[in-house]
Every structure is written in structure tokens, then in C-alpha cells.
């Protein structure tokens, strides 16, 4: 019986962790702009970085 209760609380706290993560992501504005992040992650910043080095 006690094993079930321990498992129960474990499962609810894991779920609560995900709820927390979801709330954080909403509050930090991750759902405000759904279009640019998927484009941004594909950028190859290489040409820009090499330029920076030559600047220095």
C-alpha cells in the first residue's frame, strides 16, 4: 500500500515539474513568436564569425 502512495507522489511531482516547465516557457515568451526560432536555429553563423576575427 505504501509503495503505491510513494509512486503516486513521485508521478505527480514529475508531472508538476513538467507543468512548471510549461508555465515558465509561456511566461518567458516562447510562444509569442512561433516562426523565427525554427529558422534561427538553422543559421550557419560561420561567415559572420570569421569576419569578426579579421576585425581584431
Amino acid at each position: 500500500m505504501s509503495a503505491i502512495i510513494i509512486l503516486l507522489f513521485a508521478s505527480i511531482s514529475v508531472a508538476a515539474l513538467f507543468l512548471g516547465a510549461f508555465l515558465w516557457s509561456v511566461k518567458s515568451g516562447q510562444y509569442d513568436d512561433e516562426m523565427s526560432p525554427p529558422i534561427r536555429m538553422l543559421f550557419d553563423h560561420k561567415p559572420a564569425e570569421t569576419k569578426e576575427e579579421t576585425n581584431i
Binding site: A15, A16, L19, L23, V26, Y31, D32
Partner: peptide
């Protein structure tokens, strides 16, 4: 941007 509805939805789903 109204985010409260999304948060309410998340809480209710959980």
C-alpha cells in the same frame, strides 16, 4: 499578448 488563458489551460490539463 494575453498569456493567462494558456496558463489556465495548462493548469487545468495537469
Amino acid at each position: 499578448i494575453k498569456r493567462s488563458m494558456i496558463i489556465q489551460l495548462g493548469v487545468a490539463g495537469f
